[in-house]
Simulated scan of single mutants.
Amino acid sequence: MSGRTPWVGDLVHDEEAGRRGIVTDVLGGTVWVVRPEYGVERWTSERPERLTLLTPREEMLERL
Rank of each mutant, 00 (worst) to 15 (best):
G29S: 07
H13W: 15
D14H: 00
L54M: 14
L53F: 07
L27P: 00
T52Y: 04
L64C: 03
Y38E: 13
G39R: 04
T5K: 07
E15H: 04
L53Q: 05
V33N: 02
E62V: 09
E62G: 03
V12A: 05
V31T: 15
M1Q: 11
G18H: 08
T52A: 14
T44R: 07
M60L: 13
L64M: 07
P36G: 15
T52K: 13
E46T: 15
G39Y: 03
L61E: 12
L54Q: 12
S45Y: 03
L11C: 07
T30C: 04
R63K: 13
V40P: 02
T52E: 13
R50P: 00
L61K: 08
R19S: 12
G3M: 09
E15Y: 02
E16D: 14
E49Y: 08
G29D: 08
R47W: 07
Y38V: 15
L64S: 04
T24Q: 15
V40R: 08
R47C: 03
P6C: 10
P56D: 15
R20Q: 15
V12S: 01
I22A: 11
S45K: 01
E59K: 12
T30S: 14
W32N: 01
D10M: 04
E58M: 00
V8H: 03
R19E: 13
W43Q: 00
T44W: 00
G29R: 06
T44A: 11
G28N: 14
D14T: 01
E49A: 14
G21V: 09
G28C: 02
L61I: 09
D14L: 01
T5M: 10
E16T: 15
E62S: 14
P36M: 04
V34S: 03
H13L: 13
E37V: 13
G18S: 08
M60C: 05
E37Q: 10
R63N: 00
G9C: 04
L61S: 03
W7F: 08
S45D: 02
G3S: 12
A17H: 09
V23T: 12
V8D: 07
M60A: 11
L53M: 10
R50V: 09
P48N: 04
V8Y: 06
L64T: 09
V23H: 10
D10V: 08
V8W: 06
G3V: 01
T52R: 15
T24D: 10
